[in-house]
Amino acid sequence: MTKPRVAIFDFACCEGCQLQIVNLEEEILDLIGAVDVVEWREAMSEQSHEYDIAIIEGSITRPEDEKRLQIIRSRAKLLIALGACATIGGVNKLKNNFDLKEVRQCVYGKDADMPHLNTAMTKAVDEVVQVDAYIHGCPIDRKEFGLVIRALLLGKKPPIPDYPVCVECKAKENVCRYEYGEICLGPIIRAGCGARCPSNGFRCFGCRGYVDNPNVEAAREVMDKYGLTVEDLKQKMVLFGSKQEHTL
């Protein structure tokens, strides 16, 4: 059996998620034992147009990126979105809250009108092409990366949770942030990170995106019970939840 060929591509992102793959340490040898990595700018100089699995990191922020992504999609049998930038648009979607002209001026000053600095509304990968599997988080969880890749190699459905962070948070026996009078996005955000933030004394700020069917209406009303407002909640959501399907 020939090993599946994997290519890793990055778009608009900090490359932190690729770094997580590099940081797999011993496991990276296992990964390379299981697949043939044929293109990976961060770790090797070769390039290839022949691959079975494309892993996409980053969000899509320019028209020319959309074209590049479509070409990758047409070559790959399987396309995986890697990290929050790719799965939900991530922090880059903050931009979508403002006028694009203003955004360019703010970032590039007097060069704002240069054609190569053109920018468009930020899109998650699945707003441009079909995505077969998602590896969520900012950054991704290394263990989960391994689980998803192995499941896909076996032709199985990747074990991505569709339940909220609270499940993992409770399993770790954390004191709920709401008991401290704080807002936590855990009840509407997809688990899989092991409730990383609440377990370290912070609220969940939503980097893994919403569960498939978040009860957003409840979130609005529940805020009342804590003497908080939906505006308080929206503020917490803006970092990762801007202009998503279920936006509050």
Partner: peptide
């Protein structure tokens, strides 16, 4: 109407005993 489907009420309950079973395969598959 206000339920988040977060399962916290199950997780903390001393009499809830439902579990899910999953397989995890090693890297050599």
């Amino acid at each position: 109407r206000l339920c988040y489907s977060c399962g916290s009420c199950n997780q903390v309950c001393p009499t809830c005993y439902c579990f899910d079973v999953q397989d995890q395969v090693s890297w050599d598959l």
